[in-house]
Simulated scan of single mutants.
Amino acid sequence: MNANSVQLCARCGAQWPVQGQPIQWCPRCQGVLFAPAPIDAPARRRNYRWVVRRPDGPTTQPRRRPARLGPTPAYRETPRWGLLDPPPALPSTRRRRGFAGLADRAPYFTTVAAVLFAVAGAAEIGRYIVLLYNRTRLIDPLVLALSDTAVWMMSILALLAAVVAAVAAVGWLAAARRRTFDNAGRRDPRSLRTLALGCLIPVVNLAMPGVFLTELTADATPKRKKLIRTWWCAWVFGGAMTIAALAWRFADSLQAKVDGVFFTALTDLVAMGVAVLTIMVMRDIDGQDAVGRALVPKRWLPATGPAHPVIEPIRPVAKTAQQEVVAK
């Protein structure tokens, strides 16, 4: 390469002497450098760049026609995107029959069971008061008969209501699981028979209902998960108290039997609390409040107001020397 050769920059026009191999980019502006040429060569001989084109390709780019503008968007009313929630779906007024209808009314049967357990607990407390009164005084046989009748009748009714509520709760659980898994695009791995056996067999039903409900909380809120865990603990505690109350009935001493009456009253009240928690879990999973009304989700919007307060606080005005003299 001739030592008197230079490369001209296509962007800034600087000339760079060729030292060894030619370079491609301008050290000053990073523009493209032309091929080396002698210093005294005219500019027209240096301003050539090789461009590769297809033999059959067009030499010029076709002009693109501008797209035709459509009609101006117009609205019949003010748009309110994101500011209006759709109305909640109205519940179907058609009542289903059979097991499906029983499942739909599971919260109602659970409420009846809670009320009967509360009344049964009150009857047990009444009997305990009668037994305490009998320590020093005689009891009218009619009062004793009424107390025994109230205890046995309320206990049987509460037990029957609990059985019906348990069967209805199994149907509700199956429907809730089916709805949750359908929304996730999956199939419920538990059959209705598995749910029924896990929820209705004694001792086994202390653990399996909590497992069945926990499987629904994969994408649930922390509040719902906490509610289900609380219900599970209360359910196990209530089951343990029921077993202890049944074992207490085999006591021989009179004082143990009296204590058993008081413990049975506490067991009935705990059963009432468990029934209330069961209703809360059903309402929460169904998207309802405590009385069965559909919950409307709250939408939180970020505040875009000024950072400083709109109404400035009132500050005392500094008194001048003349005002202080007049005040004195």
Rank of each mutant, 00 (worst) to 15 (best):
D219C: 05
V119M: 08
T267M: 11
R95I: 08
V326Y: 10
I314F: 03
R28K: 15
P88C: 06
R95Y: 14
R283Q: 11
I23S: 11
R190C: 08
T149I: 15
C9E: 05
P58V: 02
M208A: 13
H308K: 02
A118G: 15
L144A: 14
L8H: 00
F237C: 08
A158P: 00
V274T: 06
V326S: 09
E77R: 12
W300A: 15
V281T: 03
V170N: 01
S191M: 09
A41D: 08
Y133C: 08
R249A: 08
Q61W: 03
C9G: 06
G31E: 00
A113E: 02
L195E: 08
R53S: 04
L84V: 09
A43S: 10
C12P: 03
T149Y: 13
R96N: 01
G273N: 04
M282A: 02
A106E: 11
D140A: 12
L132C: 09
A265H: 02
L102G: 03
I279T: 02
M153H: 15
L69A: 10
R44I: 04
G305L: 00
S147W: 01
A240R: 04
L69I: 10
G101V: 11
A118K: 13
L90F: 13
A196P: 01
A100N: 09
R127A: 01
S147Y: 00
L116Y: 00
R178G: 10
P62S: 05
T110A: 07
R186A: 15
I311F: 09
P306S: 05
P189D: 08
P309C: 06
T242A: 12
R186L: 13
S5C: 07
T78A: 13
L69C: 12
Q15C: 06
K257E: 05
L200F: 10
R45V: 09
P209Q: 04
A251P: 01
Q288Y: 03
